[in-house]
């Protein structure tokens, strides 16, 4: 069971519209993500990568194919069961953060723990720990509007982690951030990766995608390329790229 993929999709398809207007947003995708792996799905906007992410996290239903999450098939269960599964097994991170404006940082983080039925005290303790982990312990009582974009996304990541999900699904997590904030988020992902967290990131930005262990390129609903980025050494050093040699 140790080698069983955390996330698994088989022959996954998602259609929109009918007849002439039929669009195959996801068109026959097979994917396996191993525990502790960071996978990036890259492609231009409209290639179907966000739809794929929604399907993997149970936010959307496939037209055909199977989705397995932590060894359970999720495309056949009811809306309520999917919600419960999302609550426990999946942490979502969105481009637009999607924090509740009327809740403080710590209240946003404990949201999913409370939804999962944890006691308010336990949820609060966990939320404060997570904020500490993302470096925002001193911002716990702030409303999202009082936080910078990068801080908001870190709060959102803390929220995604609150129920110890088997996988964190991130949809353009740095799309709304400047370079410095992007680096903060990438550093956070890196530390999660080191701690063994499984991560799936979809992005159109090759720089974000390049930080993953494995990079999948998607176009028109299909996977067109897959590159393992770890292991292989680059022929030239960074110094050479900067013009310091040769």
């Amino acid at each position: 069971m140790a080698d069983a993929p955390v996330v698994c999709a088989r022959e996954l398809r998602r259609d929109y519209g009918k007849g002439e207007g039929l669009v195959r947003a996801v068109d026959g995708v097979d994917l396996e993500v191993a525990a502790g792996e960071t996978v990036a799905v890259m492609g231009p906007s409209g290639c179907g990568k966000s739809t794929l992410l929604h399907l993997l996290g149970g936010l959307d239903r496939p037209s055909a194919g199977e989705v397995w999450l932590a060894g359970r098939r999720i495309d056949t269960v009811g809306e309520k069961a999917v919600a419960r599964l999302r609550r426990g097994a999946v942490g979502f991170v969105f481009q637009a953060f999607h924090l509740m404006d009327e809740l403080t940082a710590v209240e946003n983080v404990e949201l999913s723990a409370l939804l999962a039925g944890r006691s308010p005290r336990a949820a609060r303790r966990r939320a404060l720990d997570l904020l500490e982990q993302v470096g925002l312990a001193d911002r716990a009582g702030f409303l999202p509007t009082a936080l910078s974009g990068g801080q908001r996304q870190r709060v959102a990541i803390a929220r995604a982690l609150s129920n110890e999900p088997v996988v964190v699904l991130a949809d353009e997590p740095t799309g709304n951030l400047d370079t410095a904030a992007t680096l903060d988020v990438l550093r956070l992902f890196e530390s999660l990766h080191e701690a063994g967290q499984t991560l799936v990131i979809v992005t159109h930005d090759s720089r974000i995608a390049a930080t993953a262990d494995r990079l999948i390129t998607m176009r028109d609903g299909r996977f067109v390329d897959e590159t393992r980025l770890t292991g292989g050494t680059t022929g030239r050093s960074l110094g050479a790229l900067a013009g310091l040699e040769g």
């Binding site: 999302r86 999607h98 509740m100 939804l115």
Partner: peptide, 13 residues
């Protein structure tokens, strides 16, 4: 609503 559902809120909730 979308957000609540994304973090695992059931339709009833």
């Amino acid at each position: 609503v979308g957000l609540l559902k994304a973090v695992g809120g059931t339709p009833g909730l």
